[in-house]
Each structure stands twice: as C-alpha cells, then as structure tokens.
Computed example of a mutant assay.
Amino acid sequence: MSLPQPVPPNWKDLGKSSSDLLNKDFPTSGALLEVKTKTASNVTFKVAGNQDSRTSVIFGDIEAKYTDNKKGLVFTQTWNTSNILRAQLELENQIAKGLKLDVTSSLDPVKGGKNTLFNAIYKQPGVHSRAVLDVFKGPTFTADTVIGRNGFLFGGEASYDVTQGRITRYAAALGFNATEYAVALHGLNNGQVFSASYYHRVSPDVEAGAKAIYDTKNTTNGVTLEVAAKAHFDPSAFVKAKINNVGLLSLGYTQTLRPGVKASFGLLLDTQRLNDTTGGSPHKVGASFTFDG
C-alpha cells in the first residue's frame, strides 16, 4: 500500500528553497522599513517603505488585510506612493475542498490604468493546479500544473491569448524534493531559457545552494551562475553570502533583536572593481528593519 502523497508546491515555488537562499536577506538597494500590527478583530495592517540608495527616491505602501478563518475569506486593500489602488478577495475551501478562488484588481486613478485577474487554485495530494484570467490584457488565460509522486515533481505552464487565438507562452519543469536537498530544472520562455538549481541543507545550521541560467538568445555571456551559503550562529542570527560568475559578491547578516523585531544588513561588492576610482562606486550597502506586532 503506497503512502499518501503530499500536496506539491505550485508552479512558481518549484525551486523555491534555492531561490530564497539566493535572493532573500540581502538588503543592498537602500534602507527598508516594514511595520506590521494586528487587531483583535483579525485585521492586519502593514506599512512598508524603501529608500533607494542611488536615487534617494522613497517608495512605500500601506496594506490592510481582514481574515475570517471560519469562512475561508481574506480581503486585502493596498495603496502605494505611486497612487496605485489594489484590492484582493480570496475564498478558500467553501465551494469544494482544496479549491481557492481569488479576484485581484488594481487601479491608477490618475493615468486611468486598470487590471483585473481571476484566479482559481486547486490543491489535492499529488497535484497543484492554478488558472488565471487576465481580463484587460488580451484577455489572456494562463494555467499551470505541478504533479508530485514520491518526491519527484513534474510541472508545466501555458498562456493563451483569447483575442489572437494562440498560445503565447509555455514552459516546463521537473525536480526532486527530499528532506535535506532539492533540485529543479526549468525550460522557460518558450524553450529559450534554461535553468538548473539545487539546495542542500548540509547540517541544521548550514545551507548551500546554486543556480545556473542559460539564455539561448544571449550567446555572448554564456551561462550565468550564482552560488550561496547560509550559516546560523544561533536561533536568532544568521549570515549569508553569495557570488556570481561576474564577480559580484553579496553579504547579508540578519539578527532577531526580540520577538517581532528583526534587523538585516547587506553589502554588495564588485570584486573586479575593488580599487576602481573612476566615477561612482560600484558597491552597494543597505539595511532592513521589520517590526511585527
């Protein structure tokens, strides 16, 4: 008798362990601040701001989220400094078990831009499917599915433009997830871009990973490669480092100061231009502070 299969990750989360290791906790673009609070009536507020170190431009947004766990209902409203209004309504496990419906809309009152997405997500042991209808772009219908069996993952994605009557984008992927490691292979952008990634939990305190990307259209640079590692000093602090094949070295340090308060610091160095004195510095430094109340 075979064991029940877990719900596999969705299409975008194939290779997530490696992507998180390579991309998260490196705040090198400037200063970031995020504050979260929650009321007794299940309303969560989040205010986030980011000042770009190069341009000094500040971008921010404010978000309010209401959650009703009994009804499987989540309503989110966001307003940012670009004057974009965004609303999202989610309903899960009400029509059918494992089915989640999601309507997301955005509006630019000044420029008149608008967008509406209808999403349907279906999750069961061994399968994770999603379908998205972009009403004002095309309209375009996008669907993806990931099938999992004994750790092996097989996934595919395709977009269909209703007006043009043709498939405009397709992709495929396969991978394998185990307790201590994960690998993923992607064929993206209609078979023009290929990527391979791996993640390995070396020990309870050390993680390692890498990702290689080959773009058939970009024959000059060949394969791009990133390698990263993460080490925990203790349960409240860790350090990360990554480097790519063009010599960009990123360093990150994250410290939990107290429950709900976290600080991260990042440094980006161009190792091929350490002694460069011509013009602006190629290096970047940044910090991120998160308060979750």
Results as ranks from 00 to 15, higher is better:
Leu248Ser: 07
Asn245Lys: 13
Gln255Val: 03
Val246Ser: 14
Val227Tyr: 06
Lys242Ile: 06
Gly247Thr: 08
Asn245Arg: 10
Thr256Val: 00
Gly252His: 05
Thr254Tyr: 00
Lys242Glu: 05
Ala228Arg: 06
Lys230Pro: 00
Asn245Tyr: 07
Gly252Glu: 05
Ser236Cys: 04
Ala229Asp: 01
Ser250Met: 06
Ala237Lys: 14
Ala237Leu: 03
Phe238Cys: 03
Gln255Phe: 01
Asn245Met: 02
Asp234Tyr: 00
Gly247Ala: 11
Phe233Gln: 11
Val227Cys: 06
Ala229Gly: 13
Ser236Phe: 07
Lys242Ser: 11
Gln255Ile: 01
Val246Phe: 10
Val239Arg: 02
Leu249Gln: 00
Ala237Gln: 13
Val239Pro: 03
Lys240Tyr: 02
Gly252Met: 01
Val239Asn: 06
Ala241Cys: 09
Asn245Glu: 06
Gly252Gln: 09
Tyr253Gln: 10
Thr254Trp: 07
Leu249Ala: 14
Thr254Phe: 03
Asn244Ile: 11
Pro235Met: 12
Gly247His: 03
Thr256Tyr: 12
Thr254Ala: 04
Lys230Leu: 12
Val227Pro: 02
His232Gly: 13
Ser250Asn: 15
Leu251Ala: 04
Ser236Tyr: 10
Gly252Lys: 04
Pro235Gln: 08
Ile243Arg: 06
Ser236His: 10
Leu248Asp: 10
Asp234Ala: 07
Asp234Gln: 00
Asn245Gln: 06
Ala228Thr: 01
Gly252Pro: 07
Gly247Phe: 12
Phe238Tyr: 05
Gln255Met: 03
Ala237Pro: 07
Lys230Gly: 02
His232Lys: 13
Ile243Cys: 14
Phe238Met: 07
Ala231Gly: 08
Lys230Glu: 11
Asn244Gly: 10
His232Cys: 12
Lys242Arg: 15
Thr254His: 05
Lys242Val: 09
Ala231Thr: 12
Val227Lys: 09
Lys240Asn: 07
Thr256Cys: 00
His232Ile: 03
Ser236Glu: 09
Ala237Ile: 01
Thr254Lys: 15
Gly252Trp: 01
Gln255Ala: 00
Asp234Phe: 08
Val227Trp: 02
Phe233Ile: 14
Tyr253Leu: 08
Ser236Leu: 11
Asp234Asn: 14
Ala231Asn: 04
Ala228Asn: 00
Phe233His: 08
Lys242Trp: 04
Lys230Gln: 15
Leu251Met: 10
Gly247Tyr: 09
Lys230His: 01
Leu248Arg: 06
Asp234His: 02
Asn245Ser: 13
Thr256Asp: 10
Phe233Asn: 11
Tyr253Arg: 04
Lys240Gln: 13
Leu249Phe: 15
